[in-house]
Computed example of a mutant assay.
Amino acid sequence: MLTTQHIAANSLRDNASAGVRARIERLTMEMGSGRTSDAGRALASDFSEVSRVVHGLRTLETRAAALSGAEMWLEGGQAGLDAVARSSERLDETLQVALAPGDTPQFDQAAGVARAALTDMASALSQTHDGRAVFGNGSADGASPVDLEVLLAETAAIAAAAPDAETMIRDLEAYFAPGGNVERGALGDFPADPAVFPLGDGDAISMPFSAREDAVRSVLLTASIVASLPQAGFALTGADVETLRAEMSARGVGDRADVATLQGRMGAVQSRVADRVEGLEAARLTLEGQKNDMLAADPYETATRLQEAMTKLETLYAITARRSRLNLTEFLR
């Protein structure tokens, strides 16, 4: 018959075997991972150095996230300028036909294409990243950096007030120039300072572009000159047609060259960001190596402790089996 002493002894053995099994499982994981499960034992209870390394890794993660955001911002900017350049090229192709010498100028067709180009450009320049305007110096108010409605209305008013093509073009140039009225209306609704991605320790990546860049103003100006022709306050004949032909023939190529130069500036920033990312990855691998070295398990010691635990478990099982046989014999009596 089982006594209270038998039950207590069996309970102790069960607890002991459960503890040994847990130890075997832990040691087996150490063998597989190569890292100790007892950081305090590995570090002799001195966590200061590993804390420094862990803090360094977290700092690198934060910087890597900021650099990733900067990379996506710049990629979006490049894509936007690609779209602007394509719109400029389509308009230029239309102008070459519409204003070809010897043919009747097709101003209405050209103006329609120019308005479509302005719409496409404004859309390309209105993209956002994490709710911040890429070409609006990081503005988060949801407004487009290019207010197309205001732009069309103000440029149409300038065209309507001009007595000839030469005056209209010069007045539109003044409108789009740095400090011009475009900055108080169509291009005025976003911060003046560039968007910045802080990296910590006083370091940061600044985004060197917005819808107020000279290259952007130039393509918008060219499209606006053509788009506003139907509202012109003068007859589009004779000297005015020749002025427009001469003016427009040189603008398209120059505009796209300016956009390409701006993209080159952005590319230089992308290169610096890529260098930072590469440097952070090298630093991360170094710190990870230091952390692994601190927390590495000695494979020989782990194997020895694992063998001892397995031997102990086998002994407990043997004792349990032997006691079970004795208990059965005693019961049969």
Score class of each variant (00 low, 15 high):
Leu187Cys: 05
Gly188Glu: 03
Leu74Lys: 00
Leu280Asp: 14
Ala159Lys: 00
Leu221Glu: 09
Phe47Ala: 14
Thr286Cys: 02
Val113Tyr: 02
Leu295Glu: 09
His129Gly: 09
Leu91Thr: 08
Gly279Asp: 13
Arg35Asp: 14
Met121Ala: 12
Ala8His: 02
Arg58Asp: 12
Asp141Pro: 01
Leu43His: 03
Thr315Trp: 06
Asp189Gln: 14
Phe234Pro: 03
Leu172Gly: 05
Ala100Ile: 00
Asp103Cys: 07
Leu57Lys: 04
Leu244Cys: 13
Gln231Val: 02
Ala268Trp: 04
Leu262Phe: 04
Arg58Glu: 04
Leu295Asn: 05
Gln231Ser: 08
Arg63Asn: 02
Leu74Asn: 11
Leu67Tyr: 07
Ala85His: 09
Tyr175Trp: 13
Gly56Thr: 13
Ala274Phe: 00
Asp141Trp: 06
Gln78Pro: 07
Ala66Lys: 10
Glu93Gln: 10
Glu49Ala: 10
Gly279Glu: 10
Thr3Pro: 07
Leu172Ala: 12
Gly179Gln: 15
Arg170Lys: 14
Gly112Ile: 13
Ala321Trp: 02
Ser37Phe: 07
Val277Tyr: 01
Ser45Phe: 09
Phe107Gly: 15
Pro194Phe: 02
Ser123Glu: 13
Phe234Glu: 07
Gly56Met: 07
Arg90Leu: 13
Thr3Leu: 04
Ala268Glu: 15
Gln78Val: 15
Gly179Ile: 13
Asp130Val: 05
Ala44His: 11
Thr311Glu: 13
Pro208Asp: 03
Ala133Leu: 06
Thr119Arg: 04
Arg217Thr: 15
Met266Glu: 03
Arg305His: 05
Phe209Ile: 06
Gly136Leu: 02
Ser228Asp: 06
Leu60Ala: 12
Leu60Pro: 04
Leu27Val: 11
Leu187Gln: 03
Gly180Asp: 08
Asp120Val: 12
Glu308Asp: 11
Phe47Ile: 13
Ser51Glu: 10
Glu25Asn: 14
Ser37Ala: 14
Gly254Ile: 09
Thr36Met: 01
Ser144Phe: 01
Tyr300Phe: 11
Asp130Ile: 11
Ala122Lys: 05
Ser11Glu: 08
Glu314Ser: 11
Gln307Ile: 11
Ala223Asn: 00
Arg58Asn: 06
Leu326Met: 12
Arg41Asp: 15
